[in-house]
Design a protein around this nucleic acid. Structure first.
Length: 777
DNA sequence: AAGGCCCTTCTTTTT
DNA sequence: GAAGGGCCTT
């Protein structure tokens, strides 16, 4: 049969597996997307299942789209009608449809993480709790964890005072969400799970409908998602899950790879199929991957067999610091593009934290090389984009108080803090949401006019009439998202506000236009669809395949992707594994898996790069190579710069590549001359080759300082960590590199002392006492 | 009301 | 080394 052509026996077995639960354990590069798509095609084309009865869940919209395309390739029109999407999108759909059973309206908005944090803050304020003591972010984290475990405020376990606080905030937070007719990300899963759990009629409706449920990246499901699946598949029991516990990297988000074990327990009759044949990487790369993952404790051994031959050894490269890493990356790419005819789109640079992208971006800009950066936040996190979306959200749902707060005085129209507070208080008295009260003002006979006067009233009325008009047009003329956006932008003269004809102003307006372009794709679709889409974009959704330029992305965003050449940078202890994971063994294991994910993204060549020093918070600090690197046998590596450098740090002269100042320039000229194409937000950061911040103000790079900051160098003994300050302001000290200086400031942090010192010749430097070998004079 | 300046604080990963 | 909060002035 056609559908099975080109599939190996295990893949075929999975595709044609009979009814009942199926668990596919798929190593990296083993063709699991293929198996999933062929399975769907098989069910429809071969087993006569109607697409309407199939549900396929992925973790990103991109994966869903890809599946859609591939199934359509196999079946054509016959594939139409499969429920295909992310957990969050599918839940949103169900919740809107079933809103009558739920305590919110069908037109609810989805609060993003920014909104969520603001709401927690508001809840803390309401409860007179100190934000300093209870960090909104952390409190929200606890709430989020609870939700992912399906724990409601009432059931929240209180063991200490903090729990008590979280519980109270959680209660208040949920109330506020409902008052805003809003759901957060976790609510989408939580409410759907609760609905299915508690409402047998609804549950049966969906369970009967979905004859087949397929799930991708099963190892990254959390409790809520697991329960959801169980309910959705409760009637037909045809659950087909695909996953790889070695690639479980979302524990911090509530994901629990033990759902795989749970699955085996809950479905004892499950068929288990292993996909171990790897079609992606060379054997040399796989060997390194396996060396890293084999050290993972309590793990079922799984072998990866490369379909391809040996290849090139994995390169391990040590650099002086993150800047040298970036230069090494650029130099290598430029050389391979210029001399070996590589395509620049073949390269990807991966790192642990978003902050690491900055140095890379600067280096690319400096070398005049285009690049693209994966990350939805880059686009949707921008102020101008959030403004416009907030307007749309408010028009869609006037109860959305966060959006109201955001836009009511943006651009400035004379409605300040005091007025807003008055609106809130009066709205509460009238038992309205602030948005409803403002809308009511548009009516000339509104009794609320008397609440305000003079300039304030005039300003409010103007805003109110705009809002009312937009809503009316939306309702009556069924304005498309695009027309509504144009209308708003025009009415508020938003361009005048953002575009001050400076470089950044133009960038801002360009971004707005980019959002507008995205809206053109939603002609004839309800505003709701557009809003939901922009709320649920994931970083991975912004990976764009078109532009032929290198890709910069976090290791998390890299999951599921592959590139011919991969650089993993910042492989030092503290970054990968991240220091925040040090005290938690489970978190440390996840760091290891993260490295494994990174390694297995590479098809042909892999460069593992680590710095001797890293700078964060502005000052530099010497670091050790990632402890995971020690698990890789030397003979698997092309060790151009020996890594076992622990006790001794080579002086700068010993390094070869990173010595050359911007060697990239040579290759740069011959870089594929493709312009830094402006990419759609759906697919990438809007301006490839532009600094993320939009501001190039700080372009005279601090790094031109030949000495850099604190090159503390060698051993850790000298200053010694302390818990009593030893270098009070005003004291004179001697620094091994900078000489004599005067202490301006000092403070203790994490058992160490941070000292700001003024040096006659070098200016102010901030150093870590334990590293800098400071001597009191 | 609004804008500007200085201070602190922080940084994991993201649907 | 950015971003937000607090405090200042206009």
């Amino acid at each position: 049969m056609d559908l099975l052509q080109g599939l190996n026996p295990q893949q075929q077995q999975a595709v044609v597996a009979g009814l009942g639960p199926v668990l596919v354990m798929a190593g990296p590069g083993s063709g699991k997307t293929r198996v999933l798509t062929h399975r769907v095609a098989y069910l429809i084309g071969q087993m006569g299942v109607r697409p309407y009865h199939i549900l396929a869940v992925t973790f990103t919209n991109k994966a869903a789209r890809e599946m859609d395309v591939r199934v359509t390739d196999l079946l054509g029109e016959a594939a139409r009608g499969v429920s295909l999407g992310t957990f969050h999108a599918i839940c949103a759909k169900i919740l809107r449809r079933e809103a009558e059973h739920l305590p919110f309206e069908a037109n609810f908005v989805i609060f993003d993480s920014d909104d969520q944090e603001k709401l927690v803050k508001a809840a803390l304020e309401d409860l007179n709790l100190d934000e300093k003591r209870f960090r909104p972010q952390a409190v929200h984290g606890s709430i989020s964890n609870a939700k992912n475990e399906l724990i409601l405020p009432d059931d929240y376990k209180v063991l200490n005072y903090r729990d008590e606080v979280v519980k109270k905030v959680y209660e208040r937070y949920q109330q506020m969400l409902l008052a805003n007719n809003a759901l957060d990300f976790d609510d989408l899963l939580l409410w759907t799970a609760i609905l299915l759990e508690q409402n047998p009629i609804v549950r049966e409706k969906y369970a009967r409908r979905y004859e087949h449920v397929l799930v991708d990246e099963f190892q990254d499901t959390n409790m809520a998602q697991y329960l959801l699946l169980k309910h959705l598949a409760s009637f037909h029991r045809n659950v087909f899950v695909v996953g790889d516990v070695d690639q479980a990297i979302y524990r911090w988000r509530g994901a629990d790879y033990r759902n795989v074990l749970r699955f085996e327990e809950d479905y004892p009759d499950t068929q288990i199929i292993l996909l171990e044949q790897n079609y992606r990487s060379t054997q040399d790369i796989l060997n390194v991957a396996m060396a890293v993952i084999d050290k993972h404790p309590y793990r079922k051994p799984k072998k990866l067999r490369a379909q391809r031959g040996g290849g090139q050894k994995v390169f391990l490269h040590e650099c002086y610091d993150d800047q040298a890493e970036a230069e090494f990356v650029i130099d290598t790419i430029a050389t391979q593009v210029a001399r070996q005819g590589a395509k620049s789109g073949d390269f990807a640079v991966m790192y642990r934290t978003n902050a690491q992208s900055r140095v890379l971006e600067e280096a690319f800009l400096h070398a005049n090389l285009p690049y693209k950066l994966v990350g939805a936040q880059r686009f949707y996190g921008r102020r101008e984009i959030k403004d416009v979306i907030a307007y749309l959200r408010l028009v869609h749902n006037p109860n959305d108080e966060l959006s109201l707060t955001r836009v009511i005085n943006m651009p400035p129209r004379g409605i300040g803090e005091k007025t807003l507070l008055a609106v809130r208080t009066e709205a509460q008295k009238a038992n309205l949401s602030p948005g409803q009260l403002i809308l009511a003002l548009a009516n000339e006979e509104s009794p609320y006019h008397t609440l305000f006067s003079g300039r304030t009233l005039a300003a409010l009325l103007k805003f109110s009439s705009h809002l009312a008009a937009w809503r009316a047009e939306l309702a009556e003329a069924a304005l498309s998202p695009l027309l509504l956006m144009d209308r708003i932008l025009n009415d508020i003269a938003y361009r005048d506000y953002v575009d001050d004809s400076s470089e950044e102003g133009k960038d801002r307006w360009d971004n707005v236009m980019e959002l507008r372009r995205l809206a053109t794709e939603y002609q004839g679709q309800p505003l709701e669809t557009f809003l939901e889409r922009v709320a649920l974009v994931s970083d991975q959704d912004t990976v764009e395949s078109g532009a032929n330029v290198p890709t910069l992305l976090t290791l998390h965003a890299a999951k599921g992707l592959e590139f011919p050449v991969v650089f993993l940078v910042g492989l030092n202890d503290g970054t990968l594994p991240h220091q925040r994971s040090f005290d938690d063994p489970e978190a440390m294991h996840e760091e290891r898996r993260l490295l494994y994910v990174g390694i297995t993204r590479a098809k042909d060549k892999l460069y593992m790069v680590h710095p001797q020093n890293r700078s964060q918070y502005g000052y530099a600090e010497s670091v050790e190579p990632s402890r995971f690197l020690a698990d890789i046998p030397d003979d698997l590596l092309d060790d151009s710069a020996p890594r076992r450098s622990s006790g001794r740090r080579r002086s700068k002269g010993a390094d070869t590549v990173d010595e050359k100042p911007l060697a990239a320039k040579t290759g740069a000229a011959r870089w594929s001359a493709e312009p830094a194409k402006s990419a759609p937000p759906a697919s990438s950061t809007p301006k490839t080759g532009q600094p993320a911040s939009g501001g190039r103000a700080s372009s005279s790079r601090t790094s031109s300082d030949p000495v850099g900051s604190n090159h503390a160098g060698s051993s850790k003994s000298a200053g010694g960590a302390s818990d009593t300050p030893r270098f009070p302001a005003g004291s004179k000290v001697l620094h091994p590199t900078y000489g004599e200086g005067m202490v301006l400031n000092n403070r203790l942090q994490d058992g160490d002392e941070i000292v700001d010192i003024f040096f006659e010749q070098y200016g102010m430097k901030r150093v870590l006492a334990s590293l800098a070998k400071l001597v009191k004079q």
